[in-house]
Computed example of a mutant assay.
Amino acid sequence: MGDYRGVNELQDTSPEAPGSPSVGATPDGESAAGEQPVKPVIRAAAAKRANASVIGMIIALALSIGAFLPVVLMNPSPKSDGYRPDINVSAIAQNAAGVAGFTPVAPETGDTFRSNYARWESGSGSGVATWEVGYLTPKESFIGLVQTRQANPTWLLQQTKNAPVTGTRTAGGRDWQLRDTGKGEKSMVLDYRGTTVILTGPASLEEFSALAAAVVTSLERNPAATSSPQAIPAP
């Protein structure tokens, strides 16, 4: 009999037939380790129920807002203009007249300008005693008033923030010196009836002129400053 071992060896080492699956492969041609996870699919009925729940919540929220909105509109929150201190400028000016040596101005501005402070400063730091009043303007800006009978060039530059003279402006029948820093702050200066009055702030020139006219009226109503300020007695 012939030797068939050579034939068997050839059969064992023969290449795999085309199209035959490799060892360890699945019938679909993918390895078991490389299978993709299956994505869950929500059924149409379940998705419809979920959407219905969301729509119901939105409708309920809209109904709640609609129920409370008329109550809120019928009870608006009270309007507040903020704190307005009750400053009697005229009374404080009369009290300061005894030590000032002149009657400080108390412009009558009605309800257009509101004062937020009025005081007499002895000038212990600057050497210049002053009457000072702060005014809130109709446009919610600010103008500070300073009056003294001891003005000097250095003090004047300090009060006007070193602003240069840019012209004059007539108010109350008097020509006021106009100074402007170019950065929003401006000043109007008037030497009249023995005192110097300075108005300073970021307000508009129209508001400056309105307050300046009231200042001139007050200056002309008061006696001119002639006497020296009384010294404050030492304690």
Results as ranks from 00 to 15, higher is better:
residue 61 L to M: 08
residue 5 R to L: 03
residue 162 N to H: 14
residue 158 Q to A: 11
residue 162 N to F: 11
residue 216 V to H: 08
residue 218 S to P: 02
residue 118 A to V: 09
residue 128 V to Y: 04
residue 66 G to C: 02
residue 187 S to F: 09
residue 17 A to L: 06
residue 126 S to P: 12
residue 173 G to R: 13
residue 63 L to K: 00
residue 133 V to R: 10
residue 44 A to H: 04
residue 92 I to G: 01
residue 11 Q to L: 15
residue 73 L to M: 14
residue 51 N to L: 12
residue 78 P to A: 15
residue 84 R to Q: 10
residue 129 A to R: 15
residue 45 A to K: 14
residue 235 P to G: 13
residue 163 A to D: 08
residue 231 A to T: 15
residue 79 K to Q: 13
residue 165 V to Y: 03
residue 157 L to K: 15
residue 172 G to D: 04
residue 58 I to G: 09
residue 11 Q to R: 12
residue 76 P to W: 08
residue 157 L to E: 15
residue 89 V to A: 02
residue 76 P to K: 10
residue 19 G to K: 12
residue 150 Q to C: 02
residue 232 I to Y: 07
residue 148 T to Y: 10
residue 124 S to T: 14
residue 141 S to A: 15
residue 18 P to N: 08
residue 193 R to G: 09
residue 148 T to Q: 10
residue 26 T to V: 02
residue 13 T to R: 13
residue 230 Q to W: 01
residue 187 S to Q: 09
residue 223 P to M: 03
residue 12 D to V: 03
residue 221 R to L: 04
residue 167 G to M: 07
residue 43 R to P: 05
residue 89 V to I: 11
residue 178 L to G: 00
residue 116 N to A: 03
residue 106 A to V: 07
residue 203 A to M: 07
residue 134 G to Q: 06
residue 109 T to E: 08
residue 147 Q to Y: 10
residue 5 R to K: 10
residue 91 A to D: 10
residue 188 M to E: 15
residue 176 W to C: 08
residue 171 A to M: 03
residue 39 K to L: 08
residue 86 D to F: 00
residue 194 G to F: 10
residue 79 K to R: 14
residue 200 T to S: 15
residue 182 G to T: 12
residue 69 L to F: 08
residue 116 N to K: 07
residue 142 F to C: 02
residue 199 L to Q: 13
residue 174 R to P: 00
residue 38 V to W: 00
residue 59 I to K: 08
residue 77 S to G: 14
residue 29 G to T: 03
residue 168 T to D: 07
residue 25 A to P: 01
residue 158 Q to V: 05
residue 21 P to R: 14
residue 143 I to T: 12
residue 160 T to E: 06
residue 7 V to G: 01
residue 77 S to F: 06
residue 234 A to Y: 07
residue 73 L to G: 03
residue 146 V to F: 09
residue 10 L to W: 01
residue 145 L to A: 06
residue 66 G to Q: 01
residue 147 Q to G: 08
residue 39 K to P: 02
residue 83 Y to A: 09
residue 163 A to L: 05
residue 98 G to I: 04
residue 99 V to F: 08
residue 176 W to V: 06
residue 29 G to Y: 04
residue 161 K to R: 14
residue 96 A to P: 06
residue 50 A to H: 00
residue 18 P to T: 11
residue 156 L to P: 06
residue 104 P to G: 04
residue 31 S to H: 04
